[in-house]
Amino acid sequence: MKPFAYARPSDVAEAVREVAAEPNAVFLGGGTNLVDHLKLGVARPDLVVDVRTLTSREITDTGDGGLLVGAAVSNSELAADRRVRERWPVLTQALLAGANGQLRNLATVGGNPLQRTRCVYFQDVTTACNKRAPGSGCSAIGGYTRYHAILGASEQCIATHPSDMAVALTALDAVVHTEGPRGARTIPFGELHRLPGDDPSRDTVLEHGELVTAVELPPLEMARRSTYRKVRDRASYAFALVSVAAAVDLADDGTVRDARVALGGVAHTPWRATRAEEVLRGRRLTDDTARAAAEAELADAVPQPGIDGGNAFKVPLVARTLTAALRILTGREG
């Protein structure tokens, strides 16, 4: 581990100033991802600015049926909130599908969506990785691709975003509140993360020194009928192979009036499945509809060959997982 300076500023403005002033500075939230990366030598900051106590730990009603969740609220606290459980069950389920109890107690709402994309080669400093060492190459392509992207990848990077919570927040059209060197702003959750393109070193659109202060959950009546279905290689404590966050608004005759679908485990970002949503709207919710929606979303999917057969299985698995998720929402067998 490389030595670094540690600062504990007294407020958000000071924290932003300190990170903005030091090109090689990072914010520390719960530390569930950063501390790992410090130990592995993946993150090599000169300055670590601890913001855990600076942002709000409150979950407040916004007055319009939405919630404003302070960035320092832990994943456990958010998952347990009665309002969230009743009005956005997909979010509680996604939170509880991630990591384990100890990690969820540490992880924060502000930090969890900002964890780095996950890839065994990114985490191993003895291998080439364009994200960690721009221009060094991508070891994942043709390597161990089981957990890698089938959508939106580039020749520079095929890693996937690991946050379960972020998949739910993407489906729910959450809004991120930030404060940065250029002041405060809001970012639609679906625009927070970025595809790797030619610069995989950046996972989000946040500027250097820009701190997430809160996440806003806008009112969404259909989210009361929502679910998170995560498929992984063991029953708990594993990253998603594929996950689906889904909410539907069903007419009395079973026709889909509106739908929200986001996918995890398939791309460098939580993946909002707008094409799938379009297919679902106006149709009755059957397995065939679910398959058609998945096929539309995956029309441009590019599976990655690799060790143990690569990740082509994710293409049918997305369709099957979406089918299973939508079955849950219509009360059919799980």
Binding site: Q123, S139, R146, R234, F239
Partner: peptide
Amino acid sequence: NSAWDARIGQVANHDLAEYHVTVNAD
């Protein structure tokens, strides 16, 4: 399953996040 990356000659999933052992929930 130690996923062997023969291109570089090492186990790719060499930690307990990626090398899965059965957990309580299993």
